[in-house]
Structure formats: C-alpha cells, structure tokens
Amino acid sequence: MEHINAADLSTSELNKKIIQGLKAGGEVSIQNPHSMHNIATGLSRPGTVTIQGSTGFYTGGFLEGSTVIIEGNAGWYVGDNMMDGELLIRKNTGCNAGTYLSGGTVVIYGSTGSRVGYGMKGGTIIVCGSVGAWAGQMTLGGKLIVLGKLGADIGESMYRGAIFVRDKDAEKKLGSNVFLDHIQAGEARELEELFKRYGIDAKSEAFQVIRPLPSGRHSYALFNPELKPELAQKMRS
C-alpha cells in the first residue's frame, strides 16, 4: 500500500502520484485530501485508491476501471462521465452525482442531493440514503437504485434505463413521461447480487421500477400550454 499525503500537493501532482502508486503496488491511500477537487480524474489503471477524508468536486470524473473509495463526503459531480470501475462513497454527496455516467458502479452509502444520475447512459448508481429532486433526469440507460426517500420529479424525461425505488410515496413523486412498474425476476436477481457485493442490507422484493413511457414520444408543457380560463373568471362581488 502506497501512502500519499495530499496536504501540499496540487491536483495534478496528486493525480500523478496516484498513478505512480498504482503502478508500484496496486493500492493507494490518500491522507489529508482537504476536499480537493478533481481527485482521480480519468484514472484507468487497475487497483484501489482509498481517500481518507472528504473530497471536493468531480472526484473520479471519467474514471475508467479503478476502484476509488471515499471514506468521507464527496462534493458535487462525483463520478461524472464515469466509464468503468467502482466509486464507493461512505458518507453523503453533493448534487449531480454520477452525471452522464456511462459505465461502472457508484455506491453512495449516505444520501445525495438533486439530479443524481442526470443524463446517465449506462452503469449503476446505488444510493442507500435519500435523493433530492430530479433524480435520474433524462436518463438514457443504466440502473439507478434508491433505498431511501425520493425527491420530487424522479425520472423526469427519461428515454431509457430503470430507476429502482422502495419509497412508498414514489407514485406521488414521479416526473413526467414515466410510470411505476413491477420489478422483473431478472432485475430482482441483479439487485440481490449488487446488495450482496456492496454489503447493503436490503431485499429486492421491496422495490418498484420507474420506467420511461413506452410511447417513445414525450409531451412537453411548451407544446401544450395549459391555459385555465375557468380559473380566471371575473371577480364576483
């Protein structure tokens, strides 16, 4: 295990040292990350990087193949544009976690902010806590699994993919162009495997699935402005 003290390093220096560390032994531990931005950007070398603390923005952005573990909180955009590998966050994250994810697995053991999985195209995101508004907005593929409470407008304008939820109030929180469906046997098995692999205490049968409407054509407020003349009647004395 290589130990790196990030206290006096620039982002670029730290990322270079991470690559050198992985080359040398396959395992790297980072002390004093001090919420630095852009840690492990585009890392594509096999191995495990453990960050002993909290990180700033874009941790593990464009990650491709490595395992990155954050032992604290992560800032906005953690795992953005991730291609492959694993990104495990032990505590909470800011907004837009896993934005544009196209592969790999992000596990957030705490809660996350709004727009988790925004525009994701593949891969898996598991949130053990709750999520903010617009989770999975404009999803093009992949799986988003939420164990806790949902925010408003989940799955807004999804094109493809699936969002697994167990919030009893999911029906009231759906975005437009999606519907709530039963979980299929194959999907349940995948969930069970994921829960086992990442040490998550949950059962797949409790989950429902949010899917895009099968029509393939979305309706938008702009195209059908809802004017309500009945609400604009003259004041009666």
Partner: peptide, 20 residues
C-alpha cells in the same frame, strides 16, 4: 451541462478537462 452548473463550477471543470 449537468456537470457544470454555473461559472464557478466551470473553473473546476476546466481543470478536470486539462487533467484529462
């Protein structure tokens, strides 16, 4: 951009793209 909401975030985003 779902991965850069506003000018301050863009500063960090640019750093990310430079890294890449």
């Amino acid at each position: 951009h779902g991965d850069a909401f506003g000018a301050d975030d863009l500063v960090v985003k640019m750093e990310q793209l430079r890294e890449l």
